[in-house]
Design a protein around this nucleic acid. Structure first.
Lengths: 342, 342
DNA sequence: GTTAGCACTCTCTGAAGGCGAGTGCTAAAA
DNA sequence: TTTTAGCACTCGCCTTCAGAGAGTGCTAAC
C-alpha cells in the first residue's frame, strides 16, 4: 500500500499527536499544530480517505480520528524515524545492568513478593542498617584458570561471595598477598568510613595487580558504601488496586506517590524500628506522611540477634489486622533466620 | 477506656463487617447478621454513644457507621483475637523464603526494573529456555572449616555458584570423590532428564556423605528441573496506571489479569522468539490473548550466541514506538552481554 | 431499659436538556 | 480539478432535577 506524501504527513501527524495527548485528533488541530499548508476542510477529506482504507477510526461520529491498529502498523513500518537513544541513556542502562546486587537485596525482594502474596496488600522491606556492622576480612580462592572466588566477611558474620574473572597469570600466592594487604587496610571499617586515602594506599601497594584489585574494590566498595542501607523494597503494589477505597483516582495517586518516595517510606519504616517486634500504626498515627486512611504493620528483623531493619505491609485502615499482623510477624521471623544462617 | 460488653460486641461487629464489605454498617445489618439479641433501635442508641466517644464515624447523616482510627485502635488493642496462621501457611512462607534463586533470576528482575524505568511502561523478561543447555560438571572447593563452594557449569558456559555449609569432617579428598561421582552420573543431561533412578544411584554411591550430597543435589536439581525456564518476570506494572487508557477500571482489570497469568504471558513472549531481534506486535496482532488496545515490543536475547529468550514491554497501542523500540533493543543487547560474560 | 413507629436527611440513579467539538456536505473560489 | 469556506447536523459530556432507598434520631409505648 502506497500513500502519497500528503496522506503520510497527515497520518504521521495524527499518530504522533494522539500518542502525545491520548485525545482523538481533529482536522483543525492537525492544520494548526502541523503546518502542512492546507486547510482543515482538505484535511477532513484526506482523513475520510484514510478512514476508508482502515488506517484511522472514529470513536463516535463527532469526535476526531484516532489511528487504528493498521494505522500504527503502517506508521511503524513506513513512516517512523528510527531514533537512536542518547549516549547518556545508553550509559545509564549499561551501568544499572552491570551494577552488583548483593544477596540481601535479592532476599529482600523475594520477601516482599511473599508478603504481598499472603496478605494481598502492598509490602515493604526496609534494607538493613549496617551501623553496627564492619569489615572483617576478605578471602580470595582460585577456582580455575580464569576465575577467582571473592568472599567478603563482616563482623555480623555475614558473608557475601562473588565469582570474578582474573588474568591467567595471577597465582595463588599473589592472591594471598593481595588479600593480606586489603585486609590490613580495611579491617574494622564501617560502611561510610572508606576514604579516598585508604583506597589510594591500597592501589599503591598493589600497583602490579591493578586489574584484579579493581574488580575486588568494586565489590568491596559496593558492600561498604554508606547509602546502600537506605533502600526500600516494594512488592505487590498492584494489590492496592483491589481495595475499593482506592477506586478514587486521587486517593490512588496519593498512595502511589508515597510508595515511590523512598525517603518518606524509609521514615515510616524506621519508625517501626524503635521497639523490637510488631508495630501497628493506624491512620493518622502515621504522622508526617501525606497519607490518610492507611495503616502500616511492621515487624523488626534481626541478623544474629541484632535488630537491623523492619518489614511489613501498607494497606487501607480497613484491613484484617489480626490475620495480617500474624503474617508479618511470621515472615519477619523466617527472614531473620534465613539472613542469620548465611 | 473501658467499654461494657455490649458496646464491645457492637464495635467488633461494625469493625469486622466494615473490613469485610467496605460499606458503612447500619443498625439493621448489625442486628440481622450478628445475633446480639437486641433490636436495631437499641443498637442505634449504642452506636450514637460510640460515635460520641470517637470510636465511630458517619460519612454522612443517613449512612451507616464506619470505625474511626480510634475505633480501630481500640479494636486492635482490646478486642481482636490474635489468630495464628495455619501450619500450611507457615510452611508455604518458609518454603518460599528458603527457595534458592539463581543468578539469572536476579538479573532478570533487575532488567525488568531498568526497562520499565526508561520506558515508563510495564516490562517483561521471559526466563531463558535451556533446551540446548545441558549439565557439564560441578566442582566443589573447600572455603573454610564449614563452608564449601559449589560451582555448576553447563554446556553454554554458564556458571552458577553457591556457598554451602558442610560438616567439618569432610576433607578435600572427599569433595573430589563426591564431585567425580556426580559428574559421571549427570554429564550431558538436559533440564528435565534427571530421573529418580539417576538420583537413587548417586545416593547409593555416596551413602557416606548423605548430608553434603543432599545440599548439592538440592541445588543441582533446582538448576536442572524442567519448568524452571517457564518463568516470566514483571516490572513496572504500576506504570500502566499513568496511561489514560487505563482510567477505565474494566480495561485495567483486563490487563492486570493478563499480566498475572504467567502461562499467557509466556505464550505472548515466546511468539517474539521466532525471529531473532526486535518484534513489534500491535493491538489485535497479539492474537489469542484477551487484550485489546495493547502493543508488545520484544527483543530476543542470547547466551553465547544462542537465542534463549525474549524481553520487552507491554503498553497501550498508543505508544512512542520509535523510542521504546530502541530502548528494548539496547537493553536486550546489554542483557545478552552480561549473561554471556559470567 | 428496650422497642416500634415515623418523619427526616442524604446519597444514588436515571432522564432531560443545553453546550461544544468536530464532522460531512455543498457550493464557490482558485 | 482541487481547495476552501460555510453551515447544518451528530453525538458525547455536563448539569439539573425528581424519585427511590437506606439509615438515622426522636418520641412514645411497652
Amino acid at each position: 500500500m502506497r500513500l502519497d506524501e500528503r496522506k503520510r504527513k497527515i497520518l504521521q501527524a495524527i499518530v504522533e499527536d494522539y500518542v502525545a495527548t491520548a485525545e482523538p485528533v481533529g482536522s483543525r488541530t492537525v492544520a494548526r499544530k502541523y503546518n502542512l499548508g492546507i486547510s482543515p476542510a482538505t484535511i477532513r477529506n484526506e482523513m475520510a480517505d484514510l478512514e476508508e482504507i482502515g488506517f484511522l477510526e472514529q470513536p463516535h461520529t463527532s469526535a476526531g480520528r484516532i489511528p487504528s491498529d493498521f494505522g500504527y502498523r503502517y506508521y511503524v513500518d513506513e513512516i517512523m524515524n528510527k531514533i537512536g537513544i542518547s549516549q547518556w541513556e545508553e550509559a545509564a542502562i549499561r551501568r544499572r545492568l552491570q551494577a552488583r546486587m548483593d544477596a540481601i537485596e535479592l532476599l529482600a525482594h523475594q520477601t516482599t513478593e511473599i508478603l504481598s502474596e499472603v496478605t494481598r496488600l502492598a509490602s515493604v522491606v526496609m534494607g538493613p542498617i549496617w551501623v553496627k556492622n564492619s569489615f572483617e576480612y576478605i578471602r580470595l580462592l582460585p577456582v580455575d584458570r580464569e576465575k577467582v572466588l571473592l568472599l567478603v566477611v563482616t563482623t555480623m558474620g555475614l558473608v557475601e561471595h562473588f565469582l570474578m574473572e582474573a588474568p591467567a597469570g595471577v597465582t595463588a600466592a599473589d592472591l594471598d598477598h593481595i588479600s593480606r594487604i586489603i585486609n590490613r587496610q580495611l579491617k574494622g571499617l564501617r560502611p561510610g568510613d572508606l576514604t579516598r586515602a585508604t583506597l589510594d594506599s591500597i592501589y599503591d601497594d598493589l600497583a602490579a595487580y591493578r586489574r584484579v584489585v579493581d574488580n575486588i574494590m568494586d565489590i568491596v566498595f559496593a558492600i561498604m558504601k554508606e547509602d546502600q542501607g537506605r533502600r526500600v523494597y516494594l512488592g505487590g503494589t498492584l494489590n492496592i488496586l483491589e481495595q475499593p477505597e482506592f477506586r478514587d483516582v486521587n486517593k490512588l495517586k496519593d498512595i502511589l506517590s508515597l510508595l515511590s518516595a523512598e525517603d518518606k517510606m524509609w521514615g515510616l519504616l524506621a519508625a517501626g524500628c524503635e521497639a523490637e517486634g510488631l508495630t501497628i500504626r493506624i491512620g493518622h498515627e502515621n504522622k508526617g506522611a501525606g497519607i490518610n486512611n492507611c495503616s502500616i504493620i511492621t515487624a523488626t528483623y534481626q541478623v544474629n540477634g541484632e535488630v537491623v531493619g523492619t518489614l511489613g505491609i501498607i494497606g487501607p485502615t480497613r484491613m484484617e489486622y489480626a490475620r495480617v499482623a500474624s503474617m508479618v510477624e511470621y515472615v519477619s521471623k523466617v527472614f531473620s533466620e534465613v539472613l542469620s544462617r548465611r
